[in-house]
């Protein structure tokens, strides 16, 4: 869906559902997912429909993902960090995660 204009910024290694992904310093989680061509970041808790980041400005809550074990974080507001573990969310969040 998206590509980078140039390879600016140092690489950051993160994983998405266990798979290694190269992100860039300054990326947010949502942007890193888009750059990696990841189709959707969650399925909805109501009908299970797939969703991907929609607004990238913190208002739509469609980019909710699990970051380092904490569910329902707004991916567009969380900057990536080396070693960050991101998981896509399936339906309702599990209590305690």
């Amino acid at each position: 869906m998206f590509k980078r204009l140039g390879e600016v910024g140092a690489a950051v290694a993160i994983t998405v559902d266990g798979k290694p992904i190269r992100a860039r310093v300054g990326d947010t989680v949502a942007v890193a997912l888009l750059a990696a061509g990841i189709d959707h970041c969650r399925t909805t808790p109501v009908t299970g429909a797939p969703r991907a980041p929609y607004c990238l400005m913190g208002v739509c809550f469609d980019c909710l993902v699990t970051v380092d074990g904490v569910g329902s974080r707004q991916g567009c507001l969380v900057p990536v960090r080396d070693g960050m573990k991101i998981e896509t969310q399936q339906g309702k969040r599990e209590a305690g995660r």
Binding site: P45, V46, K92, R93, E94, G96
Partner: peptide
């Protein structure tokens, strides 16, 4: 007056 706090949807627990 009563107040209520509501969380996001969670799996049944």
């Amino acid at each position: 007056r009563g107040q209520i706090v509501v969380t996001e949807r969670l799996r049944p627990f």
